[in-house]
Amino acid sequence: MTFQELLLRLEQFWAQHGCLILQPYDVEVGAGTMAPGTALRSLGPEPWNVAYVQPSRRPADGRYGRNPMRVQHYYQYQVILKPSPDNVVDLYLDSLRALDIDPLEHDIRFVEDDWEAPTLGASGVGWEVWLDGTEITQFTYFQQMGGIECRPVCAEITYGPERLAMCLQKKDSFWELEWAHGITYGEVDRHAEIEHNYYNFDHADVEMLFRLFEMFEAEGHRIADLGYTHPAFDYALKCSHVFNLLDARGSISVTERASYINRVRALARKCCVQYLKQREEMGFPLLKAQEAMAIV
């Protein structure tokens, strides 16, 4: 199964089960969780069942394209189910079957792995899911987002499509994966990966990044205070990405680190609180769409 087909099958599967298929978010994020489709929408009582591919960036994780599995840019397949259905694990296993992974032919394990995202003030409880020893999915029940208790709780299923494809295609490296009809993942992404690594680790202008952080942060607070939550949240994401770049450059000392994280979290939290309040003032509009939103 090609990388492309794998993503298409997941889209197909979750669409059939009632999820809205969102498109990838267009601000740099470290994970699908940070996109507003998860970070903001996981708050409050409205039902929210969605799935989307999210290209993700973690500058410090790059290895100049030399490591078969460690990269600064990769993809996540993100599913959010709110409230978490009683049969959510079974649904997940069905999604693996949709990828021709028969649990009887493999070893599938749920290994405890609790999750925390300090820049979002988010935490959850769950597992990493192993397929014959490879971690293929992060499965989390959100407990908090932006420091706010999640009620109801949503289930987040984050697939690592590259790792799944490695298992299915029996390849030992991301780069060798077949993206589609004979074209490899490496041919699609490796050139950019290597350049980004040189930029992230060796050439990013640190002074500029520090200035950007200050500017993004100030702008985020300014527009949040004007009542525009979504643009403000974008600036929280931009702050987070700039912080990650500075971190990859080794420009943030240990003593400063926590304070930068706190600053991103303060802005993200402000957005979360404000978002929830706005939805409440709007009467939580999606509550009326319980049926349209139902998981089938």
């Binding site: 078969p68 599995m69 493999h106 070893d107 014959d132 020893g133 490879t134 298992c167 029996k170 030992d172």
Partner: peptide, 12 residues
């Protein structure tokens, strides 16, 4: 199949 997957991941 399980053995093969586990050997692969250990090699990595």
């Amino acid at each position: 199949i399980v053995r093969d997957g586990n050997e692969r991941v250990l090699t990595a």
